[in-house]
Structure formats: structure tokens, C-alpha cells
Amino acid sequence: MAPAEQPAWTPDQPIVRLRDVRKSFGSLEVLKGITMDVAKGEAICIIGPSGSGKSTLIRCINALVAIDEGSILVEGQEVNDPKLDKLALRRKVGMVFQQYNLFPHKTALQNVMMAPVHVLKQDRREVEDRARALMRKVRLEGKEDAYPGELSGGQQQRVAIARSLAMRPDIMLFDEVTAALDPETVKEVLQTIRQLVEDGLTCLIVTHEMGFAREVADHVYFTDRGVIVEHGPPRDILSNPREERTKAFLEQVL
């Protein structure tokens, strides 16, 4: 239900729309005017050196971090609004973290079920069916009753993805989800994300995996020191960058 002054959002408009977003922590300005549009069903990869504000950027989208200036519209709803119903926003926007952050006192299946049962107050039986289906989708059948401490990093991360998907979000945010993983488990997690992108879910992915970005992204943003240096289709950005800073960064990581 959009407020009266905002026209109702329709799927042909950008699902996420950032206008000149600024954010400082103390005297450190982390975001210096970020503008971007994400269309529904699009996969966006955000790349850039550490400390360039990537994580802060996507945390602003589900209001984990409050912005100082600018506008963020998610499905036409203003996020930078003191009256915003944050919980309603977060039901639409799922997020997966670098450190998985599973709830260690609950089994994998319970982790997936918790939010729909307690936040959305959905029927436990129905949620369980869906949770089991999600566990199959992330190829963790048989691990339902394992505790997070008994799973490998890659497995935990896939549970975390399933946990987010159980809320049936319209948008998914991925914050360097493979950065804490062993190289051999990175692949299984990326495979899961790729599948979500193919299913047509809108994904904003902060990543260091350039190969993955090239393959999956519809659009790549390169950020450095709080600004978007350049953006475009992965071919352009990753293979023929125009900006010096992008070139330097890519040379370093590739």
C-alpha cells in the first residue's frame, strides 16, 4: 500500500531506485552520492576494492543502515523515511551475509522455518513443506536436522540462502557471501545463486568473484571510495573498462 503522494509502483519501473545516496560514519564519508536503478528480475553485481562502501550500500537498501541524504525507493516505497515500516520492507528484501549468521541454537530446517512462522505468522505445517523444498533446492537434502556448527561453511551459507528465500522476497541482497569460504565450497554457493538468477529473482550481489560476475550479471557496478566509477554490461566493464581506476583494480584481482 503506497502512500498517497507516491504513485503506485508497477513492475515496469525500477524495483530498486537510488538517487544521490550519501552516508557518513562519523567524519568518514562512505557513500558520496550513489545513483542506480535496478529493474525487476535483473542481476546486479557490485565490485570494487575493500572499503569502497559496497557493503554499506546494500545494507542501506533494507534499512539495516540509515542513510543521511538522498532517496532509496524499493518497489516505489521510500526507505529514507522516518515513518517507514522497516519490518514490512525487510519482508520484501532478503539478505545473505558474509559470515552466514545462522542461528546456532536451531537446526538447519528450523533456521529456514523461523522467520515465516514467527514473523509472517504462517502455518507451521505449510512452512515446513516449503522449507524442506528449499533445502532440496539448495541441495542440502538430508541435512535438515544438522546444527549450523555441524555444517561446512558452504553448507551453512546455502542454509542461509534458503532461510532468506523462505520469506519469499522480491529482492535478494548478497554481501560477499563467498568471501569467508574455502575455494572448493565457493562453487556450490555460486551455483545456488546462479539458479536464483535464472529463476528471475532480482539479485544485488556484492562480490569479488569476477568470473561469476561476468557470467551471471546483467549489469556490473564498479565502486571505489564511495562513488560509482563506472557501470554497464559485464563485457564492457570487466573486459574493456574505460576508467583508470577500474583498470587498476581489475589488474590487481585478475
Binding site: L64, R90, G94, N101, F103, V119, R163
Partner: peptide, 27 residues
């Protein structure tokens, strides 16, 4: 309890009270 627990509960739209009683205190 690591901050990540709060953050991920928040991202899953748990209210502060729900987060406290269902996620933080049990741990």
C-alpha cells in the same frame, strides 16, 4: 552474541523483541 546475529534477524524482519526472546536470549 556476535552482531551478525542481530543483523541477520533484523534482515529477516524479526522485530527487536522477537529477536531478543527467540534468537539472542536462547543463545
Amino acid at each position: 552474541i556476535p552482531d551478525g546475529q542481530w543483523e541477520s534477524a533484523e534482515a529477516l524482519a524479526f522485530s527487536r523483541r522477537q529477536t531478543m526472546w527467540m534468537i539472542i536470549l536462547p543463545q
